[in-house]
Design a protein around this nucleic acid. Structure first.
Lengths: 212, 212
DNA sequence: ATATGATTTAAACAACTATTTGAATCGACC
DNA sequence: GGTCGATTCAAATAGTTGTTTAAATCATAT
């Protein structure tokens, strides 16, 4: 086993255990045992348990915001994108990562949602600039796409979308529930758009009753 | 300090630390120090660290589903409730607990969302029956209120609502963001309904573009 | 083959964990 | 005032944690 293999095995084992039991509840010994490595290996290759987490976090969550901005750039290149296009640029990268993680292990997607609640300080420290850039870009894109809403309202509704997405990662298979997502990314995206488009685009204070 | 005082102080300190740092990251010493009690007190009054968590969990999350069912009962007593009424019965108890926690300490609401991801196995074990009952009740209520949607679709959309609510608890004051909720429960409810009513009530596959 | 730097190993480190113990202290009732 | 049960206390238990150390092993290039 080469050195790179050891490093990779440790990262894989750590991801899985962090996703299953959380960062604080996972010991380095569990990780190295699962990876077939020595305990000292994690400090040799990463420096500390926290730096191991950061490297994993970077690798998993980093690409999401990168792809988001790529897609938004592409959409804005042609014309001013509408809500559907902006939402697609925002959501599709999540679904890509979600599917990638799920294909590796069913419990792996929870890593993302766990990190948001368990290591949020860290999350913001690591991804701070990326998040800030993507955030600003999507705010203005949404404001152009839904001109009727104030900046605060846009921010609030985008938060709701983030909440839905995080819950998606958290409960790909919640007990007693049908899985929230399937294998077909396109179908999943359309399902997500079905609920997020009306969420983002309807004007404020419009009350719809079932008897209409 | 009477025995009940000690118990209450321990619960208060534990709630706060669990909300701030998570269950696994909080030691009994931190808790008892903050509560001004001896380390042995928690095992004397609760039995173990986990039973302490369960008692706190019960006290905070328990009332939510109880009030949900009360409100749904009241709404169904008069007539068949529409989406707005069912959603109100579902959301209002969350806002009540959220405000109550927030008034005690700004970081306290995170306890709820943390417990969902950190102690979800425990969560379902403790609240299993309550959750199951409330879940079934609201499913059928929503199916009557939005007859156009299938059972699966109802479940999926209700999951989205839960995701939004959990995110609400998680990020009452996320860094760099305006607080998602204010002090006025009625205003907050209306804001939540503004996004959840269209989310629940629109028929599937209806695409709205900004140029309409 | 040999020397060199990178990697792995077993062992020990100090600090921390939840829980238990038995004696000390308290409060209330006869 | 003395008795009894409930509560608190300091101390110790046994186990786990992340991290370090120094020797052993490996792979590679001369």
């Amino acid at each position: 086993m080469t050195a790179e293999d050891t490093k990779e095995q440790i990262m894989r084992a750590a991801e899985l255990q962090f996703a299953r039991d959380g960062y604080a509840n996972t010991s380095l010994r569990e990780i190295t045992d699962m990876a077939g490595a020595n305990i000292a290996a994690v400090n040799y290759h990463f420096g500390s348990k926290e730096k191991l987490l950061i490297e994993i976090l970077d690798r998993i969550v980093g690409p999401i915001n990168e792809e988001r901005i790529e897609l938004l750039d592409a959409a804005e290149a042609e014309s001013i994108p509408d809500v559907t296009e902006v939402l697609t640029a925002f959501l599709l990268p999540d679904l890509h990562v979600l599917q990638q993680l799920r294909s590796r292990d069913p419990s792996l997607p929870r890593f993302v949602s766990r990190m948001y609640s368990e290591g949020s300080e860290l999350m913001y420290k690591v991804m701070g600039r990326q998040f800030a850039e993507a955030q600003a870009r999507f705010y203005s894109a949404f404001q152009r796409a839904v001109p009727g809403l104030s900046g605060d309202e846009i921010a609030w509704r985008l938060s709701c979308v983030v909440g839905i997405v995080l819950y998606l990662f958290a409960s790909v298979q919640a007990p007693g529930m049908p899985p929230m997502m399937g294998d077909d990314v396109d179908k999943d995206l359309r399902r997500l758009l079905d609920v997020t488009i009306p969420l983002m685009s309807t004007s404020s204070r419009k009350v719809v009753t079932s008897s209409d």
